[in-house]
Design a protein around this nucleic acid. Structure first.
Lengths: 150, 150
DNA sequence: ACATAATAATTATGCGCATAAGCAAGTTGT
DNA sequence: ACAACTTGCTTATGCGCATAATTATTATGT
């Protein structure tokens, strides 16, 4: 592949990342949230209470990032942490009522954003989009693909 | 669109952003670069010397980000800043020899990354990928689409 | 001509994300 | 039973990116 084509691919992904995140930031700002936090809330809403390590795995983010995000969302009253009874190292993280209400609002935004994102695409293309993107993600994923090399 | 579909789209974009960036970080680390800096070098290599405001526009990044990245790349010896003769506010930013050599190395990585990214896709799909992603980007771009509202 | 607006750049601050390093609490092997 | 490893979490630090506010220069409108 020549440079022009490669650059077109890489740049397109880079710009999509920037703009999609910026759009999320704009949508979340009225709720007092920052990009990334919505994923945490949605995961808790979907799966229920869990410990930090599970959140780290589910969000595809390293544990230190979870620590800080949880701290802020807890300070904002959207999350509650209670010591796990069977494992003194872990804390169980769950949504508060405020957090649940917020997650519902985020779900609305989430739908609006997705529709906005795929606007103008043929239905077929839009339907295949997640699978396509997941393929790309799998191709560059250093988490499971590459670590199998030691 | 229901939540499950919307989430599939949004999450796929989010994860692709994270993993693609992580892969870039891994590839650039041996060169002593961080993600984002490669775009700056490539832009200078492609277009030649320019001022910060042009870089900001070209990279789709706000001016303060340019200031800091330029400072670091300058400290690393890859970039040179010289006062613009016709405008005392601006500085002309250009690659040093070291920066040019580095940009060439980045180009290699860039091609390898793109090939890795689209691996397993039908040639047709791969060829259409940049256009598709740019459509998505345009759909969520707050820079020109939304600002036309005041 | 001169006040006003636009532009180029910077500093300060905050968030998400990462890695490196450390601690405490579990788990396992012999 | 005890050493060795793993796991869960945290702190420290650094980068990219953003917004808000400030300064210095250039452009503009009357």
């Amino acid at each position: 592949m020549d440079f022009a084509q490669a650059d077109a691919v890489n740049q397109a992904i880079r710009l999509l990342s920037l703009r999609h995140r910026a759009r999320i930031a704009a949508l979340l700002a009225p709720l007092g949230l920052h990009p990334g936090q919505e994923a945490l809330l949605l995961e808790l809403a979907r799966t229920g209470p869990m410990i930090g390590a599970q959140l780290s795995e589910a969000l595809g983010v390293e544990p230190p990032s979870i620590t800080l995000m949880v701290r802020k969302l807890e300070a904002a009253g959207h999350i509650r942490r209670t010591p796990a009874s069977d494992d003194k190292r872990a804390s169980i993280i769950e949504l508060t009522d405020s957090g649940k209400a917020l997650a519902d609002q985020v779900k609305q935004l989430w739908c609006a954003l997705a529709e906005e994102t795929v606007a103008g695409l043929p239905a077929r293309t839009a339907a295949e989009l997640p699978g396509l993107l997941n393929t790309l993600t799998g191709n560059v994923d250093t988490r499971r693909s590459r670590p199998a090399r030691p």
